[in-house]
């Protein structure tokens, strides 16, 4: 019975399709009531649950190639649910769900020690340096399904967990035990105009992500560290796949998948 319910929600992002437009970032901020400030010039103080990185192959024109890489929280499983951040949180304010594979953040439990931020190699965790303030009238567009966060605590991508809750409620009301693939999709997935992001249950053979993660060009960020993330990337370009991890000069770009 338990196995029947167990899920590992994850993402596959096709970097060949990503144009770096930033729609996923906007969709995420809007969906999750992510606060912003009047001055957002200092990017390391900006909260971006979903962040698009830009990097190049380091070659000069005309051989320059650019890659845009959207980076949500990787919802790392680590070994046995000991993801880098979950195992270090002193107040059990973040947890790895073995039922969904989602790393949660309990805002009312977090007391802002920021140890989890130091532990995350992806910089997917953000601190609320200020209290959130929305321009007058804009508070009316806030999502009622996501609680805004107060100053002094850490927040991060939740894989739009509230959407899973809503989908579960809908399924329950219709007498179903299972949530359909299209009933639970993250905001960034739906916001991507290029269709670069695919979301679903990584261990469900019926889901698209199950097939995509087996693509020969699929890789995960920093696999060698043992974080065991649940976000996969696909790129036909070898230099992009190589940028996904760290390699010694003589090492070949490797592929190691734990799922």
């Amino acid at each position: 019975m338990k196995d029947f319910h167990e899920k590992k929600y994850g993402m596959v992002i096709d970097l060949d399709k990503c144009t770096g437009c930033g729609s996923c970032m906007v969709a995420c901020m809007s969906e999750n009531n992510v606060p912003f400030k009047e001055d957002e010039t200092k990017k390391r103080l900006s909260i971006t649950w979903m962040k698009v990185y830009k990097f190049t192959n380091g070659k000069s024109f005309p051989e320059t190639e650019v890659c845009y890489l959207p980076r949500p929280c990787m919802h790392c499983e680590g070994h046995g649910g000991h993801s880098p951040c979950v195992s270090v949180c002193p107040a059990t304010a973040t947890d790895y769900s073995t039922e969904t594979g989602i790393v949660s953040q309990i805002y009312t439990r977090c007391f802002g020690c920021r140890y989890c931020m130091g532990a995350c190699p992806y910089h997917a965790r953000y601190f609320n340096w200020w209290d959130p303030v929305w321009p007058k009238g804009m508070e009316k567009q806030l999502s009622p399904n996501v609680s805004p966060r107060m100053r002094g605590i850490v927040e991060k991508c939740s894989f739009c967990y509230h959407r899973l809750q809503l989908a579960k409620e809908k399924a329950y009301s219709e007498g179903r035990r299972e949530v359909r693939e299209n009933e639970y999709q993250t905001s960034c997935t739906q916001g991507c105009p290029a269709g670069a992001i695919t979301f679903g249950d990584l261990i469900n053979p019926k889901h698209e992500v199950y097939k995509l993660k087996k693509d020969q060009n699929a890789f995960r960020l920093l696999e060698r560290l043992g974080t065991n993330p649940k976000v996969y990337y696909i790129s036909s370009r070898e230099w992009v796949r190589r940028a996904g991890d760290n390699y010694l000069a003589h090492e070949k770009t490797g592929k190691k998948q734990n799922h």
Binding site: C89, P90, A91, A93, R109, C110, F111, C113, Y115
Partner: peptide
């Protein structure tokens, strides 16, 4: 001074995660 929500500082004891080194420190 360092923690973002000083009034919640006692959570480290009350809701202790025994796997965290910081809990052991506290």
């Amino acid at each position: 001074i360092d923690i973002g929500q000083p009034l919640r500082g006692w959570f480290i004891f009350w809701h202790a995660n025994v796997h965290s080194m910081l809990t052991e420190v506290a």
